[in-house]
């Protein structure tokens, strides 16, 4: 098992290097001079030249890329922000807790709502509930999350005045953002759960469990859901990864100072090191989530468990 994890970690390195290269290239070919954006239109040509010199912007592309990668590998240095002159990594890490909180709460909403609705829909296939859930699921997939966020703010913060509209000053502040982000994922988790459960509850071993005199509820939870869980976990993992990186819009709507918003602001300001750092960081998060999901499989799927158990001995 440890060997497997180590192997997977090593495999992440080329992926991240590739991501770094792509982002670096994109930043390089993007029009606009960061020096002009940061120093303002009124800056003198001398000041701009000095800034470019200082930040190494005049070096050839490959030299700049290798300097960047070298910094990361040898000094764990992701560069310094053009705007604040502070190390990028520190800035990201100070914003990361908010992003993680949002993603974790949303994932909780998504899993609870998605799996529950999916299971009920499958068990009561073609019932009124199933049809309603399908419609809601379709809405969830089709609705842009920033729009849904704004609608929720309008209803619960503006008209009803039950919940705060923005900020992160206490538990109450997290309800609307996590509902917004969670609902969208809940829809896809629900659809996967439903189709998986429909397949599983037609299996013979479900009849075996019934023939034992087991209660229907226990059959669905213990026998059916556990078997349906493997593909569902895949979807949950992908959704969670996306929440970590892609909650930009929700962070913006609800003014949550997370990594996503930091990245967007950096793009606007042409703050290249920050953009590169955040993208790289979020990609690494995504890879770690994937690794986590793969490790989870081995606990759920006995075929994988026995495979790695054998390797160990």
């Amino acid at each position: 098992m440890a060997k497997y994890i180590l192997k997977r970690l090593l495999m992440m390195l080329p992926v991240l290097l590739g991501v770094a290269f792509v982002v670096f290239t994109l930043m390089y070919i993007t029009p606009g001079d960061p020096a002009k954006v940061i120093l303002g239109e009124s800056a003198t040509p001398e000041a701009i030249a000095a800034f470019r010199q200082e930040m190494g912007l005049d070096n050839p592309f490959l030299v700049r890329f290798f300097d960047y990668v070298k910094g990361i590998i040898f000094h764990f240095d992701f560069g310094t922000s053009y705007q604040t002159k502070k190390p990028v990594l520190g800035e990201i890490l100070s914003r990361f807790p908010d992003t993680v909180t949002l993603a974790a709460l949303s994932a909780l909403v998504a899993v609870v709502v998605g799996v529950t609705l999916g299971v009920i829909s499958a068990v009561k296939q073609y019932s009124l509930f199933d049809n309603l859930a399908s419609i809601i699921g379709l809405l969830g997939v089709a609705m842009p999350n920033f729009w849904m966020g704004m609608m929720l703010v309008l209803i619960f913060a503006v008209y009803l005045r039950w919940l705060p509209a923005s900020g992160t000053y206490g538990p109450k502040y997290w309800i609307l953002p996590s509902l917004t982000l969670g609902f969208i994922s809940a829809a896809s988790i629900m659809r996967t759960t439903r189709s998986q459960m429909l397949e599983v509850i037609r299996q013979d071993y479900i009849d075996t469990a019934r023939a034992k005199g087991q209660d229907e509820m226990v059959i669905i939870l213990r026998h059916a859901l556990r078997n349906a869980m493997i593909p569902i976990i895949t979807v949950i993992g992908i959704q969670f990864g996306q929440m970590l990186g892609g909650s930009v819009l929700v962070e913006t709507v609800f003014s949550i100072p997370g990594v996503g918003r930091y990245m967007i602001d950096a793009i606007k300001a042409r703050d290249y090191p920050v953009v590169q750092g955040t993208v790289l960081f979020l990609s690494a998060c995504f890879s770690f989530v994937n690794l986590g999901v793969d490790i989870l499989y081995t606990f759920i799927d006995p075929k994988m468990k026995t495979m790695y158990a054998k390797k160990k001995s």
Partner: peptide, 30 residues
Amino acid sequence: IRGEKISMIFQDPMTALNPVMTVGDQIAEV
């Protein structure tokens, strides 16, 4: 009554057992 007084053996043993439970747990369940 099911499982205690009347029980059933199914056609295809390949699919009649739950793949994610140990066989011991499946017997112990009943």
